[in-house]
Amino acid sequence: MDNKQSGEFMGLTKQALGVLRVTAGIQCLAVLALSLLLFKLPIRPVFSVLMILVILILCLVYFFKITEFRHRRYKYRISDDRIDIIEGVFFVSHTIVPVDRIHQVEIAFDPIDARFGVAKVIVTTAGSRAVFRFLEKERADAVAEKLNKMIKERLAAAQKGEGTGEGDV
């Protein structure tokens, strides 16, 4: 691994865990509400109760353990020439975006994010996008600012005709 990649991977804060828990809670409630439909099926009520119990246990595991694991697993890194985002529990995705392909950076947040003081930083390239999730607002600002600065430096270098190759930033 070369020097440019050697920046530390960053994890998420406790506020992010709050967002994950609230989101998981809403999802679990929706699933449990839907599972009540099992009583409408032409099966013995005892089976319906048993199935709902299993769903309840899975929801509890999801709410307490999976969200925590997801929180712990989420990592991101911004190097001079690339951004890396690692996320997922069972299916892990490692997203790599070269910094010089980025052409737009946005900060966005939904009501749950706002309640916990976190935000998303959406990075758009000419043909794709990547999202830094659950960043506390100050950190989101800092990430957007850093990317913006890197982009502007590369833009200035390009306008001077110096190129944007390795080591330009």
Partner: peptide, 20 residues
């Protein structure tokens, strides 16, 4: 790694539209 090291093929002028 090779993708990151490769110079962007598209324009480096108009594409950067972000203004904070």
């Amino acid at each position: 790694d090779r993708t990151v090291k490769a110079k962007d093929a598209l324009s480096t002028v108009r594409r950067f539209s972000y203004e904070k």
